[in-house]
Design a protein around this nucleic acid. Structure first.
Lengths: 207, 207
DNA sequence: GTCTATAAGGGGATAGAC
DNA sequence: GTCTATCCCCTTATAGAC
């Protein structure tokens, strides 16, 4: 065993930087974030940070990439267990809320990017999100055709689920303020999950 | 009549600046926005802009204030016409979507501020939003007690309505991308309205 | 009210010693 | 890999002429 835990491998240092970068980009967006703040959070100098990531742009892209990989893995309705509408939609909502709970800063970085018009994400979304979504939309339409749920617009259904699950990450400060808590805990997420699942399943006419 | 339309009154100039400021703050948040960009959009020099608003901070506060005044006027469930759950919630959803459609940039400025933890808004929200919301929550609880809707958590209901209506402003770029449109039109908002209203009314067990 | 000039500091990024 | 020093541009803001 190595008795010098102070020395980090290159990969460990990069991970520390990426974590700090996620925090700062989440708060201030790309333009508003200062790599100096990220360096300080990591315990490095700005110059040293630039040794690991050659530019702010590259660092930001890496942060975005990491989030999106996690995202898309759980994104697809098709990726859920089960094969009936109730089970799969329930699982989908739970999965989205889990991400909001465990990766709130990633969600905020994504939110900032979308608010800005997704300038650094547009092509990625077209290439990766849209194909997955089309499959999911087709599945919803099949369920509708089979009479297993009410005829609704699948796209607006997804917009609603995305918004109302991500809000527990992106707008957590407002929710905490309303609920009078300093931080959302697991119980809050369970209540959110119960509320959303019941409302959506019933609202879609799913038995 | 004055034949020199070039000369603007002080108030008109201030309005032009505030409009441009809303655009830029919406895109980049407080830190990321440059008053130079705002000045250019307005056709002024940066120095001249600072003649009308003494600092970036003051300008931002003014922009926030304008949005919030509009916001809270339509915010209350109590402010809606009608007196039965179906009519009032329908009107509430419509009102929120109207704001997203007519003031997308205001919504984005608000979103950026909340993502940052609402540092410049916290006190205002506590003083003005919370009291209104408590009344609305009490109304929902009354309706539940009267058996006019299912027993749900009123807070999470409002979080859901806020998120799924504001998403059409804040995340419009993602929605436009998915729907293959360059800009959301009135028809899109009508479809969103129909979808959300049906889902929520039915999901809450309101007849 | 609008301009030029300029202060004073922060930003991202590079060079080179160690 | 980490440091000091430095470049150069952009930022907010002020001073003062017109």
């Amino acid at each position: 065993m190595n008795s010098k835990p102070k020395r980090l491998t290159r990969e460990q240092t990069e991970q520390k930087i990426l974590l700090a970068a996620e925090d700062v980009f989440a708060l201030y967006g790309f333009q508003g974030a200062a790599i100096n703040s990220i360096a300080e959070l990591t315990g490095l100098t700005k110059q040293n940070l630039l040794y690991y990531f050659p530019s702010k742009e590259v660092l930001y892209q890496k942060v975005l990439e990491n989030i999106l990989d996690l995202w898309l893995a759980k994104m697809a309705l098709f990726a859920q267990r089960g094969d009936d509408p109730k089970t799969m939609i329930t699982s989908y909502i739970q999965g989205k809320l889990d991400i909001s709970r465990t990766h709130p800063n990633g969600s905020k970085v994504f939110a900032n990017e979308i608010i800005q018009g997704a300038p650094r994400l547009r092509e990625y979304l077209i290439a990766h999100l849209l194909p997955l979504l089309e499959d999911d939309v087709a599945l919803i339409n099949l369920w509708i055709k089979q009479g297993r749920m009410d005829p609704v617009d699948p796209y607006h259904l997804f917009f609603m689920i995305w918004a109302s699950t991500q809000t527990y990450a992106d707008f957590s400060s407002q929710i905490e303020l309303v609920l009078g808590k300093s931080k959302l805990d697991e119980q809050d997420f369970e209540q959110a999950n119960a509320f959303l699942t019941n409302l959506i399943i019933k609202g879609l006419g799913i038995k």
